[in-house]
């Protein structure tokens, strides 16, 4: 076979090359996405709650015998409030899970709901780095720590913010994909 002939064969698919969705497999696919989303969200929530509880507990405990550092105290308060906020969000999320039926559309809406929550949680994690960073810096200055420690904190926070932005982008893209799928389903009806 000459290459030109291969090209002709290749070109035959141009007009009719489409993938069509098989409904039951699509449903399974949505359920898998939904479970993955729930699993990741669950881990993210527990990690964020643990960090926002353990760090302030450590900071407050380490300050107890000596002088009180105002910035660390505010930071601890901020983190504990964040932990409470995430716990409340988690409670609301779990109690709202039963709203969705087990149809393709219901499961897809559930997956979208989880993805939207993931996006918000990632944004919270990303932007809480700013007040935490500022308070950590003022605490270090207050404690007369060397400048290089502050510089390292700034670099670490910058990297953490970048990584969080990257993670947030993935969640937004997944949300967009699920919403696109719902739009397609709506168009088909």
């Amino acid at each position: 076979m000459e290459f030109d002939e291969m090209k002709k064969i290749w070109d035959t698919q141009k007009e009719e090359y489409v993938f069509t969705h098989n409904q039951s497999a699509l449903h399974n696919h949505v359920v898998v996405k939904q479970k993955q989303g729930l699993h990741i969200t669950n881990i993210s929530e527990w990690l964020m709650i643990a960090v926002n509880v353990l760090v302030p507990v450590y900071l407050l405990a380490s300050m107890l015998p000596g002088e009180i550092n105002i910035s660390f105290t505010i930071l601890s308060g901020w983190m504990l409030v964040t932990a409470a906020f995430i716990s409340n969000g988690r409670y609301k999320r779990i109690s709202g899970n039963s709203r969705f039926d087990r149809t393709l559309r219901g499961d897809l809406q559930f997956a979208i709901d989880v993805a939207q929550y993931q996006v918000k949680l990632a944004a919270l994690g990303r932007w809480s780095i700013v007040p935490i960073g500022l308070l950590s810096l003022t605490a270090l200055i207050e404690a007369d720590k060397p400048l290089w420690i502050a510089a390292m904190v700034v670099v670490s926070l910058f990297l953490a913010n970048y990584a969080a932005g990257w993670e947030s982008g993935i969640y937004r893209a997944r949300l967009h994909q699920l919403e696109g799928l719902m739009k397609k389903l709506d168009e088909e009806v």
């Binding site: 076979m1 291969m6 064969i9 290749w10 035959t12 698919q13 009719e16 090359y17 489409v18 993938f19 069509t20 969705h21 098989n22 497999a25 699509l26 399974n28 696919h29």
Partner: peptide, 19 residues
Amino acid sequence: AQHVLDDNTSVVDDRLAWL
């Protein structure tokens, strides 16, 4: 593996599958 995407081309031409 499940056929989440059903490929319409698979039945079109054996030569395309070969390619």
